[in-house]
């Protein structure tokens, strides 16, 4: 679920409010969106992919992580390179090559009959 909105990184574009398919965010004070309905989050990572400032982090769990989890610790996430990692792999952002250009997976095993 969405766990982090970085006040420091956020550029107040409100893109996350627009793109979240389950309407999790609300406009917040000082232009920083707030996680208003975390339980509606479907852990699809779309907000993170669309955030131009790598200010959002979605933990892979479909339930909230504990308050002291490293997945809520912005410093840890930035230090390990996890913050912004999905956007980097998608190749989204200025000067990046789209990941789709490289997306050739392995030949899958044929369906069993």
């Amino acid at each position: 679920m969405i766990e982090v909105v970085s006040t420091e990184r956020c550029v107040s574009c409100d893109v996350c409010i627009a793109v979240c398919p389950t309407n999790v965010f609300e406009a917040g004070p000082g232009g920083i969106p707030v996680i208003a309905r975390q339980s509606d989050c479907q852990t699809c990572f779309m907000c993170e992919a669309h955030c131009p400032a790598d200010a959002l982090f979605v933990a892979p769990h479909t339930h909230p992580v504990p308050a002291d989890s490293p997945l809520r610790d912005e410093e840890h996430l930035a230090g390990t390179g996890l913050l912004g990692s999905y956007r980097r792999e998608l190749g989204w952002g200025r000067g990046r090559k789209p990941g789709a250009r490289l997306a050739v997976g392995p030949e899958l095993r044929p369906a069993a009959t």
């Binding site: 990572f45 892979p60 997945l71 999905y86 792999e89 990941g99 997306a103 050739v104 392995p106």
Partner: peptide, 14 residues
């Protein structure tokens, strides 16, 4: 696999 479906690894990496 990583190139083909980067989102498959989101869970594991995190």
């Amino acid at each position: 696999m990583r190139l083909g479906q980067p989102n498959f690894f989101l869970t594991f990496d995190r």
